[in-house]
């Protein structure tokens, strides 16, 4: 009978590079992201994990839930430690091993931005993945520059909600001229696995941005963890696309666009947003979506919403 996702059964059952017993919360999007990413990458992978939720999820010494080599590193160094490992592997003649930096939004957008920028400018042959739960979740839900406007966090409480727009990390990476930039999420798992398979075979700095739901931080029931992630794409808040050597492809075109309000109202963290702010966010999302469509298909006239 037909599988929902275009992922062969053997791929899901052949090996367990991620084993259970991990310390993630119920419904953790980051745990699911790692599981699926490794399905695309396989066992010839090394992972660099800076301070972030995954620093804890993996388990406590002397145990690790991952069956690939992992090195924990200080918060801001994921990209450059990966670069160092890559140099060493090249010296050893092991060029087919993927070195992946697996960092949260804090370690990418904020404190880790410098080392990421350095690695990207050098086009170091690493795969950099930002699993983005849109706040410093590991330390208790504080805002980052990846936190979307209107979201409650412990440092943007009601009355002082974050107003600044979310940094556009894909564009920042693109500005470095790297060969591959993509966004993905567990709500479209076959697309995610495919992107990791593809990224594995590209040389140079590859950047994948994963929207990673966090039930405690987003104030949602763990049961709807994947559903809300899907709503992010259906409402065009989190478009799923890839840019390969400057060429844009939008991978998920929502058949029926979900209103942005539905996405916001599904999460407790947006409960304090006023109508004005919702309207502003909706406009921002619309604008960015249209720009993206235009870049993906410059020949077409600018799309409009009917």
């Amino acid at each position: 009978m037909q599988k929902t996702f275009d992922i062969p059964r053997e791929k899901m059952t052949n090996e367990e590079l991620l084993q259970p017993g991990m310390l993630s919360c119920q419904g953790c999007g980051a745990a699911l992201s790692m599981k699926l990413a490794l399905k695309g990458l396989g066992e010839r992978t090394m992972i660099v994990i800076p301070a972030s939720c995954w620093g804890i999820i993996i388990g406590t010494y002397p145990y690790s839930t991952l069956q690939v080599p992992v090195i924990h590193v200080p918060f801001e160094t994921a990209a450059v430690v990966a670069s160092g490992i890559r140099a060493a592997l090249d010296v050893r003649g092991e060029a087919d091993i993927t070195v992946m930096a697996w960092a949260g939004d804090g370690g990418t957008y904020d404190i880790g931005l410098q080392s990421l920028s350095g690695a990207a400018e050098r086009n170091d042959d690493i795969l950099y993945v930002c699993y983005d739960n849109e706040a410093y979740m590991n330390t208790g839900i504080q805002r980052s520059s990846a936190t979307p406007p209107g979201a409650w966090t412990s440092t943007t409480p009601a009355g002082a909600l974050k107003e600044e727009p979310k940094k556009d990390m894909e564009m920042i990476m693109l500005a470095h001229g790297v060969p591959y930039v993509a966004s993905a999420s567990v709500a479209y798992p076959d697309d995610l696995v495919r992107k990791f398979e593809k990224a594995r075979n590209i040389k140079g700095t590859r950047f994948i941005h994963l929207l990673s739901s966090c039930p405690p931080g987003w104030r949602i029931d763990s049961a709807v963890s994947v559903k809300v992630t899907r709503m992010a794409t259906q409402s065009c808040v989190f478009p799923i696309y890839e840019i390969e050597k400057g060429k844009y492809t939008v991978n998920v075109l929502p058949e029926e666009r979900l209103p942005v309000e539905d996405y916001l109202q599904a999460q407790g963290r947006f409960r304090e947003m006023g109508k004005e702010m919702i309207r502003a966010v909706r406009e921002q999302v619309d604008q960015r979506w249209l720009e993206l469509l235009a870049r993906a298909d410059p020949g077409k006239n600018q799309a409009s919403f009917d």
């Binding site: 660099v48 160092g84 060493a88 010296v91 050893r92 080392s115 400018e121």
Partner: peptide
């Protein structure tokens, strides 16, 4: 015969060699 990573700061310089030494190469 060595790889020279032209890092963007000293903090990154040390981080890079932490990576390469952990991968088993004299740095």
């Amino acid at each position: 015969d060595a790889q020279f990573i032209k890092v963007e700061s000293e903090h990154s310089a040390m981080a890079a060699v932490v990576g390469s030494e952990t991968a088993g190469v004299r740095s």
